[in-house]
Amino acid sequence: MATYDLEEQEQIAEVKAWWKQYGNLVTGVVTAAAIGVLGWQGWTYYQGSQAGKASAVYGVLQRAVVDKDSQRVKTASGELLEKFGGTAYAPLGALSAAKVMFDAGDAKTAKLQLLWVVDNGKDGLRDLARLRLAALLVDDKAYDEALKQLDGDVGPAFAVRFLGSRGDVFSAQGKKAEAKGAYLAALAKLDDGDKTGQGKNTLQATQVNAAYREILRLKLDALGESS
């Protein structure tokens, strides 16, 4: 057996004393760190698993969209929202389902799908859902609810459309002055985008903006208020 000199014995004694006082704390910290790492790995695996399953359901939904099978679309979308609402596939599926259900004459389900995206979606998808929901509410003559969807912050990609849609609501209400103001504001924002280079990254974007500008001018003409 090795023989320790006095200095080594004192060091060993100090280590034993320190470990006796703080050993449980160190063990607890190490254990907690290990649990944290395992927990993160488990969560990452769970998220990946959920995304994979959601992707499969989304694939079923898209095939049903192509087949125009509204019942299968409704079922697949319901599964996405109920089981995989936290994945990126859920709002995409709901938007697709909303269009199919509306085309099938089921405006009620279409609105519920859009409302889910409004409540749970993010950024551009949420703005798109607000825009589409407002249009359905105008069809129902629920003008105040439509304007609520068009109020508040909106991303730059949809700012012009939101102004144009506000004009549509006011026009449907017979409020010509308010409708004119909204349409002119939308045209002005389009012009600002042209001056700053926004919306001109692609030929398609330029063509879409040109077409929408013409639509706004036709709506102003319909009000008897040409720009």
Results as ranks from 00 to 15, higher is better:
Glu8Asp: 13
Glu10Cys: 03
Ile12Cys: 08
Trp19Asn: 02
Trp19Gln: 03
Tyr22Arg: 09
Thr27Val: 15
Ala33Leu: 14
Gly36Met: 14
Gly36Ala: 11
Gly36Pro: 08
Gly36Arg: 04
Leu38His: 08
Leu38Ser: 14
Gly48Ile: 06
Val57Asp: 14
Val60Asn: 10
Arg63Pro: 00
Arg63Asn: 12
Gln71Thr: 06
Thr75Gln: 05
Ser77Glu: 12
Gly78Ile: 03
Glu79Ile: 10
Leu80Met: 02
Leu80Asp: 01
Leu81Thr: 14
Thr87Asn: 04
Ala88Met: 11
Ala94Trp: 14
Ala98Met: 03
Met101Ile: 00
Lys111His: 01
Leu112Val: 02
Gly124Thr: 11
Leu125Gln: 13
Leu128Gln: 15
Leu136Pro: 07
Leu137Ala: 05
Asp139Ser: 14
Asp139Thr: 13
Asp139Gln: 07
Asp140Leu: 05
Asp140Gly: 06
Tyr143Cys: 04
Asp144Val: 01
Asp144Arg: 09
Leu147Arg: 08
Leu147Glu: 07
Lys148Thr: 15
Val154Lys: 03
Pro156Glu: 06
Phe158Val: 02
Val160Phe: 05
Phe162Gln: 05
Gly164Ala: 09
Ser165Val: 10
Ser165Pro: 01
Val169Trp: 09
Lys176His: 07
Ala185Asp: 13
Ala186Lys: 02
Lys189Glu: 15
Asp191Cys: 05
Asp191Tyr: 05
Asp191His: 12
Gly197Met: 03
Gly197Ala: 06
Thr202Ala: 13
Gln207Ser: 15
Val208Pro: 04
Ala210Cys: 05
Ala210Glu: 15
Leu218Ile: 07
Ala222Glu: 10
Ala222Phe: 13
Gly224Met: 09
Ser226Met: 08
